[in-house]
């Protein structure tokens, strides 16, 4: 039985998404370093996941339910700014700390580091490893008969890594129906369009051929994200959601521009971006 998300919730998610985008841009601007494009493309996905879908505990290992949490792995670790913004919004740490992002001594490393920050299951940043790590976690949960789910957010460019497809085979072979992968399909990587550099083709068909259930959605549409996550939770096989997104979403001059993959806005650009996100 899949519930629909309510209108007031959708309104709230949209408001929070705007604030998350503002925080992401302010963090990257303050550090003068970071990855705005791929952080902005996955805001709605993370927002719905953490606020309406995952069972998780901002007090982390101090919570008695800690072992029963759903797991989240940011395989596209360069979208760390987006994850930190969501973790702060959920209460893992104070929002002020966001402004230490990427600076010397900060817990908010350029790419997520589990030994520094609570809320991070495992360090990521080197692409292509998150799906396989998630397979291991899914196997571990099954061994312990824990019903929790493992959510892993991948980039579309990272599907060029062979480790991803080794893991795709692993997941279906081991019938990991507690594993839910989300591909942030923003169609751009550092050097340009994913289809120009190494065409990924039909991601849904590829995963289906590897023995997964798959669903393609609009990755900025709250209802579609919510619906697909509910559906994925009740799957008999590993489930992949291919979320079509816009890189740089929400900031006119960043949208669909590969140049904003790993570049910080200057003062003027930040001002304009924040104006657009009012």
């Amino acid at each position: 039985m899949i519930n629909k998300i309510s209108e007031p919730d959708i309104k709230e998610i949209k408001n929070v998404s705007k604030q998350l985008r503002r925080n992401v841009l302010m963090m990257i601007h303050k550090a003068q370093s970071g990855h705005p494009g791929g952080s902005l493309s996955c805001i709605e996905i993370l927002n719905v996941l953490f606020n309406y879908c995952m069972k998780h505990y901002p007090r982390w290992d101090k919570d008695v339910n800690f072992n029963n949490r759903d797991r989240f792995i940011l395989s596209k670790g360069h979208a760390s700014a987006a994850l930190y913004a969501v973790l702060a919004q959920c209460g893992y740490f104070k929002e002020e700390e966001l402004m230490t992002f990427r600076q010397l001594g900060s817990r908010l490393q350029g790419h997520p580091c589990n030994t520094k920050l609570e809320g991070i299951e495992v360090s990521t940043g080197s692409l292509g490893q998150g799906l396989s790590i998630s397979c291991g976690i899914a196997l571990g949960l099954k061994l312990d008969k824990i019903e929790s789910k493992v959510f892993v957010l991948m980039g579309d460019g990272e599907l060029e890594e062979g480790n991803v497809w080794e893991a795709a085979m692993n997941a279906s072979h081991n019938k990991l129906n507690n594993l839910i992968a989300i591909v942030d399909r923003n169609k751009l990587q550092i050097d340009g369009s994913t289809e120009d550099i190494k065409s990924i083709g039909d991601i849904r068909l590829k995963f289906e051929a590897f023995g997964w259930n798959a669903l393609e959605i609009d990755g900025h549409n709250i209802e579609e994200i919510y619906y697909s996550l509910q559906k994925a939770k009740n799957s008999d096989k590993p489930f992949v959601i291919i979320a079509n997104t816009i890189k740089g979403k929400g900031v006119s001059f960043m949208e669909n521009n590969a140049g904003w993959h790993g570049k910080a806005p200057n003062d003027e650009q930040l001002k304009q971006a924040l104006e657009e996100l009012k």
Binding site: Q129, I133, E166
Partner: peptide, 21 residues
């Protein structure tokens, strides 16, 4: 767990299992 001829998957799957204690 025999992951087949896939050493990268071998290491990262082991990492995930270690994440579960």
């Amino acid at each position: 767990f025999n992951v087949g001829i896939a050493e990268q998957d071998l290491m990262t799957t082991a990492a995930g299992l270690a994440c579960c204690g």
